[in-house]
Simulated scan of single mutants.
Amino acid sequence: MRCTASAAVSFSDLGTRHGAALPQEWRTVWRSAIENLRLDQLPQHNRWRAGQVLAHLAQHDSDTFESWFCRRTRSS
């Protein structure tokens, strides 16, 4: 799961210009990876990047952000 999460936060159209664009056909799999993202299981730089992605989602894709947040609060 850690590799999936690290890959999920790498795409450029999610709050940064760095990285490859997320292909539309990968969006469902990507969303699942984000919903299951656990910041405490990521390397430090990926944690920072995940924070950038989550901030972007909070502003531009609130449903995905809410799903991630709810899963984290239930698993704590």
Rank of each mutant, 00 (worst) to 15 (best):
R2L: 02
R2S: 01
R2T: 04
C3S: 11
A5S: 11
A7T: 10
A7F: 08
A8L: 01
V9M: 09
S10W: 01
F11M: 08
F11K: 06
S12V: 10
S12M: 11
D13K: 05
L14K: 04
R17N: 09
A21M: 06
L22A: 02
P23C: 03
P23M: 06
Q24N: 10
Q24C: 13
E25R: 09
W26C: 12
W26L: 14
R27N: 06
R27I: 02
R27D: 01
T28W: 05
T28K: 10
V29K: 07
W30C: 01
W30P: 00
R31F: 01
R31L: 03
R31Q: 06
A33L: 02
I34Q: 02
I34Y: 02
E35D: 09
L37Q: 00
R38M: 07
L42C: 14
L42T: 08
L42E: 14
P43E: 07
Q44S: 14
Q44D: 13
N46Q: 15
N46I: 08
R49A: 02
Q52W: 13
V53M: 04
V53R: 00
V53P: 01
L54H: 10
H56G: 10
Q59K: 12
D61M: 00
S62E: 14
S62R: 15
D63C: 06
D63H: 11
T64L: 09
T64V: 10
T64G: 06
F65Y: 15
F65V: 15
E66V: 14
S67F: 08
S67M: 08
S67K: 08
F69R: 13
R71H: 08
R71Y: 05
R72M: 03
R72D: 04
T73F: 08
R74N: 11
S75F: 03
